[in-house]
């Protein structure tokens, strides 16, 4: 009897710990996928494949960092795919046609992304329009701008310094290093600073945060700015991979980015989750794609599988009580 209660209490403690550490659920899922890969497609573990995977994951993972801030703060940003496209095009034009150095071009598109993010934020906080609607609007407008300034044409970039970012350093693509740097800086910000804490607090209970005198409009604006800047970096990185600016690049990426965030275990209702969890989510989504390609599963089927994964992740979180506020 005493043993029984001891074990049941231990079990409860473990369950609570499991539910309270944001990364554990998605990490379990990712380990499951790694085991699946070992069994079904061992080529997954070839160094060339791992390097390729890291390159593939970078674009989505960088954009997901910013999206995670927005979702954690209780909103959503649908404009990320379009910002990726615009940043891709603008960076290509600045470098190819205006002789910008790659770094000046990066800085420029980050600024543009930040301004678009701030615009999203102001519509949400000042004009009180739901973020879903606001960013659906900017999704369309920003994509339109990408088409207009490129004239709908592809812009090849021959700048060597720019293309060199596509190389591999210590077995890891440079663009993935860029992602890691962003991940470390933003995780420090999110976990260790006041504003980072307020992002989570705002998503958890916006009214409480306001009633305690914290400027939660500022916090929301900041999250949207982060999202815009991260998407711009993602678009720039996509340009490195493509060696060009394509006005339709990043089309539909908002879904992949949001899926990465949600599969990572960040609740769409805000407040729960972390950037590390988001990173795991991006890896889960990209690895599955990679495994399906290796297993020879066709492109149409891939859509179905990815959608099912998203639904399973949502179900897992619902059962953990993450969606219950």
């Amino acid at each position: 009897m005493a043993r029984n209660t001891f074990y049941s209490r231990l079990l409860t403690t473990i369950k609570e710990k499991y539910a309270s550490i944001d990364e554990l659920k998605s990490l379990t899922g990712f380990i499951g996928i790694l085991i699946l890969a070992a069994v079904v497609t061992p080529q997954f573990y070839l160094p060339q494949n791992i390097t390729m995977l890291l390159g593939q994951v970078s674009v989505i993972a960088i954009a997901a960092l910013g999206e995670a801030f927005v979702i954690l703060s209780g909103s959503i940003d649908l404009s990320v795919g379009s910002i990726i496209g615009l940043a891709n095009v603008v960076a290509a034009i600045l470098i190819a046609q205006y002789n910008f150095s790659p770094y000046m071009a990066l800085f420029s598109v980050m600024t543009i992304g930040g301004i678009i993010g701030l615009t999203n934020g102001i519509f949400v906080t000042k004009l009180r329009i739901p973020s879903f609607v606001v960013t659906l609007g900017t999704l369309t407008v920003v994509r339109g701008i990408a088409y207009i300034i490129s004239g709908g044409l592809n812009i090849p970039v021959y700048n060597e310094e720019f293309l060199r970012l596509n190389e591999v350093l210590y077995g890891v693509p440079i663009i993935f290093w860029i992602y890691l740097i962003a991940l470390v800086i933003l995780t420090l910000f999110f976990e260790k600073t006041r504003l980072g804490l307020y992002v989570r607090a705002t998503g958890s209970n916006e009214l409480a945060v306001r009633n305690l005198g914290v400027d939660n409009s500022g916090v929301k604006n900041l999250a949207f700015v982060f999202s815009g800047v991260c998407s711009a970096i993602a678009g720039y990185v996509l340009g490195v991979r493509l060696g060009a600016g394509y006005p339709h690049s990043g089309l539909g990426y908002e879904l992949d980015v949001i899926a990465a965030v949600v599969v990572g275990g960040v609740a769409l209702t805000g407040g729960t989750g972390s950037l590390i969890a988001t990173a795991i989510g991006a890896f889960i989504m990209t690895s599955i794609l990679n495994i399906m390609v290796l297993a020879g599963i066709g492109g149409f089927m891939q859509y179905v599988v990815r959608g099912i994964i998203l639904l399973v992740a949502a179900l897992a979180m619902r059962r953990a009580g993450v969606f219950v506020k």
Binding site: R200, S204, N205, L207, V209, N211, G271
Partner: peptide
Amino acid sequence: DFMLCPDL
């Protein structure tokens, strides 16, 4: 109504 953040 307490005004707590359940996730903190």
